[in-house]
């Protein structure tokens, strides 16, 4: 699903090495190790409360891990000397509840971080924002406030906001779970386009249709552990573990 040039560079851009994370008594992630290659679309699925979102949030340090090692684009996240803000500006994040800034217009939502973090000029930031709004299909919404948008439009603005930083990686945390059914497709189409262009993506979602169309690798996460990993769609056709079979039969029917 992606052009070959982005696959030619096949080093690992995200390395999770034996990471664990607990919230009090609850163990959210237990000794998880996984790598994501440059340009790869990695699809994480599994039952609610299985640690999917936590795992994703660890990658840009919204959650701190208890043990283990995380390396993003060659930089150790767990090193106390690391400038977390710099890594975060390289890693775009899309949230389930959009988290747009309600006091700023759509355009300002997209230009703010460009100006204060990337130090771009106002003119340059505006150009980027307009281009991205066209790309996600809502150029006419530049001057409205987020609360005047539908859910699908909000999420597309959120994607544009993250892309404006020219991230090397995009993380999607259940991007369609809060949307009305008729709006899911418009968001998925934007994500599919991104995957085609060779963006490195880690997607936590229940949208099996997206996984079938775009995933290079699928990871089934349950009770804080990786139960099964599959290349491409093989997990659909040939799940090895019983736990995976049960889950897939439930979500696919």
């Amino acid at each position: 699903m992606k052009n070959s040039s982005s696959l030619s560079n096949s080093d690992d851009i995200i390395i999770l090495d034996n990471i664990s994370k607990s919230f009090g008594e609850v163990k959210a992630i237990i000794d998880v190790s996984m790598n994501v290659k440059r340009g790869e679309v990695c699809f994480i699925f599994g039952p609610s409360g299985g640690g999917k979102s936590t795992l994703l949030r660890c990658i840009n340090h919204l959650e701190t891990i208890d043990s283990g090692k995380i390396v993003v684009d060659g930089i150790h996240l767990t090193d106390s000397k690391t400038d977390i803000n710099r890594i975060r500006s390289e890693v775009g994040m899309v949230f389930q509840l959009f988290n747009l800034f309600p006091h700023l217009k759509v355009l300002e939502n997209i230009t703010l971080a460009q100006k204060v973090v990337r130090k771009r000029s106002r003119k340059e930031a505006l150009e980027v924002a307009h281009t991205l709004l066209k790309r996600v299909g809502i150029p006419e919404k530049a001057d409205v406030f987020p609360n005047q948008l539908s859910g699908g439009q909000k999420q597309r603005v959120a994607i544009a906001r993250a892309l404006a930083m020219n991230p090397k990686i995009m993380l999607f945390d259940e991007p369609t779970s809060a949307l009305d059914p008729e709006m899911i497709q418009e968001v998925l189409e934007v994500m599919l386009d991104l995957a085609k262009e060779g963006m490195t993506m880690v997607v936590v979602s229940h949208e099996m249709g997206f996984a079938k169309a775009a995933a290079d690798r699928m990871i089934f996460l349950s009770d804080g552990k990786i139960v099964e990993t599959g290349i491409g769609k093989e997990i659909f056709t040939n799940p090895k573990k019983d736990r995976t079979k049960v889950f897939l039969s439930q979500v696919l029917n």
Binding site: N60, L62, N85, R86, R88, S89, E90, V91, G92, M93, F95, L97, N99, L100, F101, P102, H103, L112, A113, V116, V117, R118, A158, R161, A162, M165
Partner: peptide
């Protein structure tokens, strides 16, 4: 989520306060 969105865009703690949290 507002702080998280701001921080995930690479804003510092001060910047997210200054541009996102305090204006709201």
């Amino acid at each position: 989520g507002q702080t998280e969105a701001a921080r995930s865009l690479g804003m510092s703690h001060f910047q997210s306060m200054r541009y996102i949290i305090l204006p709201q």
